[in-house]
Design a binder for these strands. Structure first.
Lengths: 187, 187
DNA sequence: TTGACAAACGGAGCATGCTCCGCTTATTAT
DNA sequence: ATAATAAGCGGAGCATGCTCCGTTTGTCAA
């Protein structure tokens, strides 16, 4: 990679971060970012094929951090498996709420299929979710576990989450409802 | 409502239906539709505030029909509750697959929140799903039932469904996995 | 029938995401 | 140092969703 290209990539990330701090992510146009970065739009798009992928690049650190933290929790915690799962959910929802703008951009972009689902990020998220689900899902095949992880992620996507919040549910209520649904129960 | 307005609305629906039959929904622009309908784009947008809502209007008949059919099934069927739920899922997935382009447009539009979630259509869909879920969900509050219906719909949205299909799952496998997840089980 | 006017029309035009391609520049072999 | 060249740059420009607003028309009271 040429040195100027590397510099430009950094300029873009800095400019985007700056603008996203100043105003709502959805109101920041790619042109704005290019302008603030002091480069052409062509250069911007060569580095990040669309706005969603740019947002993903900016989220990567946050998510990586979240995943690392959660994996540590899952290995060290001594709480009951149920409690562990609920705590995981709670923290995931907190994380979502904190990064909602970036995540919404990623999840509602025009090419979710190729951008989000095929990303390294999604794979890692599934992985983590599978780890969180496994202890509360007895007698389940690996493929079904993967399926449930996909479903859990889908349930808590921006749109759906925002809708539940709008309906008046608190994060706690959502956590409780989800865990009631996902945890193998015999009542 | 003025008579010319009424006529134009019909012209739009006809033009859209015609174009959507000829080529992929996503490749048909609003300008195309206005042109074929023989009206200005302003008129088009006064009738349907965005492409998603136009697609919803076109889907309404299909979905209404589906809902009516399913409600009849739910009242008349003599199968076991489990079987009934699985049949419901199967037919819902079949329906999705048949109308996938319109549904994708609706569910991935820029304003899903106001267009989809706040539509009469969504309310009816939730209603139906709650009816389908109720027999397999003992001891559950009405609000939790509503939540589960929301979640089930969210799990099977276009993106998520398309991803599962792409991963190689058949409709039958998806049905089976979902029913295993949603049905109160004591194994 | 006619006049007044709300309702509706239509298309120019704006914003934004994204592409295309001629020009510039860092790199590297000589 | 120089020349050759691939890698990269940048912004004009395209497509599309959507808005704005001056013009036209259906409706209805007089």
């Amino acid at each position: 990679m040429r040195k100027d290209a590397q510099i430009n990539q950094q300029k873009i990330l800095n400019a985007a971060a700056k603008l996203f701090k100043e105003r709502a992510v959805s109101t920041v146009s790619m042109k704005d970012i290019a302008q603030v970065a002091g480069i052409g739009t062509g250069t911007l798009y060569r580095n990040f094929p669309n706005k969603s992928e740019l947002c993903m690049a900016l989220s990567l650190d946050y998510i990586q951090q979240f995943i690392t933290g959660e994996e540590a929790q899952l290995h060290n915690s001594t709480s009951s498996v149920t409690k562990q799962f609920e705590d995981f959910l709670t923290r995931w929802l907190e994380f979502r709420e904190r990064r909602i703008q970036l995540l919404t951009e990623i999840e509602t972009g025009p090419s979710v299929m190729s951008t989000f689902y095929h990303s390294q990020l999604y794979k890692q998220l599934v992985n983590l979710t599978m780890q969180a689900l496994k202890p509360i899902s007895d007698n389940i095949s690996e493929s079904e576990l993967k399926f449930r992880a996909d479903m859990l992620i889908s349930m808590l996507k921006s749109d759906s989450f925002a809708y539940q919040r709008e309906q008046g549910l608190t994060r706690e209520q959502i956590t409780s409802n989800i865990s009631h649904l996902m945890i193998k129960r015999c009542d």
